[in-house]
């Protein structure tokens, strides 16, 4: 059990995946833009460099809160990662773990907001409030989109949803709308381009993380990268579960390929669009995505029920 927790598919595996995904993403984006991109060890080098840097906190910031926030969010993401099966391997599973995972995955958003709020810098405060606004815009359609597979499979357990797909086909094919909404929601959750509004460089410098440095910043970056991995794994499980239609490919391999595929989709999206304004995102979230997600749920209930 301890081995499962710490090495595979637990902490170490997620950590390596985070670094690898970060590299693939940056490399891919660079190629889309006609650049070379970083070498494979760049994420490791960045992490080591940040860990070695001096840790500075501005006066007026509670040092305990500032230290606890990145740790809490990292812990939340790792815990969420435990309930997400990787191919045929899973650490823990119970009925309703999807809801727990979704709760755990929204803790970093809250911590991110708090990190901006406790800071004394104006950019951090602005970034923090933007993060919260963004959270309200993407989270509702995201949750509703993820409810689609659960309703279809008649279970709130990720393993059951995967099992359901092994008898039929990918839910992404049955609910393409839900899949697209989930991807958009995930982009919003990960604060990636084009929804990197809370950390928009030309507007709020680095958002909540402006005043962070050294180890804490490294932890924040690691959290973000881990969140990418966990979010992608979650989507793969829910929408592209192991299906017998595609023949006897080992679950391990096909799961990895599917995850990288979603990652490439995210990279493409970040190369395709300009950053939205926060009010445009709110409009998009509530006027377009949320009604579409509602339609999706109604259809799923009608089919599933």
């Amino acid at each position: 059990m301890l081995l499962k927790l710490l090495i595979f598919p637990g902490f170490l595996f997620l950590f390596l995946c985070a670094l690898f995904f970060d590299w693939v993403d940056r490399r891919m984006l660079a190629r889309f833009q006609g650049r070379v991109g970083p070498p494979w060890y760049q994420p490791v080098a960045d992490l080591i460099k940040l860990l070695a840097k001096e840790d500075i906190l501005p006066t007026g910031v509670n040092p305990l809160t500032a230290a606890v926030l990145p740790m809490v969010s990292l812990a939340a993401v790792l815990t969420a990662g435990l309930y997400i099966p990787f191919g045929a391997f899973s650490t823990a599973s119970f009925e309703g773990d999807l809801i727990v995972v979704l709760f755990l995955l929204s803790i970093p958003a809250l911590a991110y907001f708090l990190a901006g709020w406790i800071s004394t810098g104006v950019y951090s405060v602005l970034g923090g409030s933007r993060a919260l606004l963004q959270y309200f815009s993407y989270e509702v359609p995201f949750l509703m989109a993820l409810a689609g597979p659960a309703i279809l499979a008649g279970s709130w357990s990720i393993t059951h949803i995967v099992d359901y797909q092994s008898q039929t086909i990918w839910i992404a094919l049955m609910q393409p709308l839900g899949f697209v909404l989930a991807i958009i929601g995930l982009i919003g959750k990960l604060k990636r381009d084009p929804l990197d509004i809370p950390k928009a460089k030309s507007e709020v410098v680095a958002g909540s993380l402006t005043e962070f440095s050294g180890r804490k910043l490294a932890l924040w970056h690691l959290t973000m990268n881990m969140q990418t991995v966990v979010g992608i794994f979650l989507l793969v499980n829910l929408f592209m579960g192991q299906s017998s239609v595609f023949g006897p490919i080992p679950a391990f391999l096909s799961f990895g390929l599917k995850s990288v595929g979603i990652l490439l989709l995210l990279s493409t999206a970040s190369a395709l669009y300009a950053r939205l304004r926060i009010d445009q995102l709110a409009t998009l979230g509530w006027r377009v995505l949320a009604p579409l997600a509602l339609v999706q749920i109604l259809v799923a209930t009608w089919i599933g029920g």
Binding site: L29, Q33, G34, R35, K201, S202, Y273, A274, R275
Partner: peptide, 16 residues
């Protein structure tokens, strides 16, 4: 301009 609106692809293409 593209960089400032977070459109790095156009930024890179224009400078290329």
């Amino acid at each position: 301009q593209a960089r400032n609106i977070g459109f790095d692809t156009i930024f890179m293409y224009a400078w290329r």
